[in-house]
């Protein structure tokens, strides 16, 4: 782990929907270049936590600081600025259905970063090539496979030069034979030093990429540590058990 000052600090995040507590005082501290992996059973609050971090869902209580700057949840400009700096990858891709792969990327460059069309397109093509889709720029989302859609979504987020990337189960909606292409893109990002928080059930991402694992259950972080600490042989804890089951599933499939 690096010893920089944290790039992102989320403290005592609380969120409930209709009286159901989804997040109950969650703390996350992320350093530059670090990769945190969130694991745990469905409904444990992983997605909500990620959405709270870039304020797609406004926390009921708690504090978020990006580079030591606290975010004022009631100030829209603050929220827009936060989201521009924190990229997000969704399980369901959320590509804009009416725009080509290229325009999916250029729209935010043009409307948010105010780049002119040419500059935006150049940047977008570059990002598409980075994820191996240089030829697919003119296709619409419906003409792409799931894996290709997710790679476009990653290119779209990266084009905004985010300081942090949040990935919410990026491979969970994909057919097994399409997962590989997305994993290799994510591994590439990690190799380039991208700072990430990722919720995933993908055992190969957990064990190879994580600098830090957070195990979430019932809206709380119940275990936290490096993969070495948590996944060492002979350890008995929730993370270990969970990963063992994922492993069994993964080997069972082959």
């Amino acid at each position: 782990m690096t010893s920089n000052t944290p790039i992102l600090k989320a403290q005592a995040i609380q969120k409930s929907f209709d009286g159901n507590t989804i997040l109950n005082g969650v703390d996350v501290v992320l350093e530059k270049g670090e990769i945190i992996v969130l694991i745990g059973p469905s409904g444990g609050g992983k997605s909500t936590l990620l959405q709270c971090i870039n304020c797609l869902v406004i926390p009921d209580d708690g504090q978020i600081e990006l580079e030591q700057q606290p975010i004022d949840f009631s100030n829209k400009q603050d929220l827009y600025r936060l989201r521009q700096q924190v990229g997000m990858i969704f399980q369901e891709f959320n590509l804009f259905d009416h725009l080509t792969a290229l325009d999916n990327i250029t729209i935010a460059l043009r409307k948010v970063k105010k780049l002119d069309r040419n500059t935006a397109e150049k940047r977008a093509r570059l990002e598409l090539e980075q994820v191996g889709l240089g030829e697919k720029g003119d296709l619409y989302p419906a003409q792409l496979s799931g894996g290709q859609k997710q790679r476009v979504a990653i290119a779209r987020a990266l084009a905004m030069d985010p300081k942090i990337l949040l990935l919410d189960e990026p491979t969970s909606a994909l057919d097994p034979d399409l997962i590989g292409e997305v994993i290799s893109v994510i591994k590439n990002l990690a190799a380039k030093g991208m700072t990430m928080i990722m919720a995933t059930h993908q055992i190969s991402l957990i064990s190879t990429l994580a600098d830090h694992i957070l195990f979430m259950e019932n809206g709380q972080i119940v275990e936290s540590g490096t993969p070495k600490e948590l996944l060492a042989k002979g350890n008995v804890n929730k993370t270990q058990g969970f990963c063992d089951r994922l492993n069994e599933l993964a080997t069972g499939e082959q």
Partner: peptide
């Protein structure tokens, strides 16, 4: 909803 989430996550304002 995902279309809104995708756009908001990129920093587009609600009006945009």
């Amino acid at each position: 909803r995902g279309q809104y989430a995708g756009a908001h996550a990129l920093g587009l304002t609600h009006f945009q």
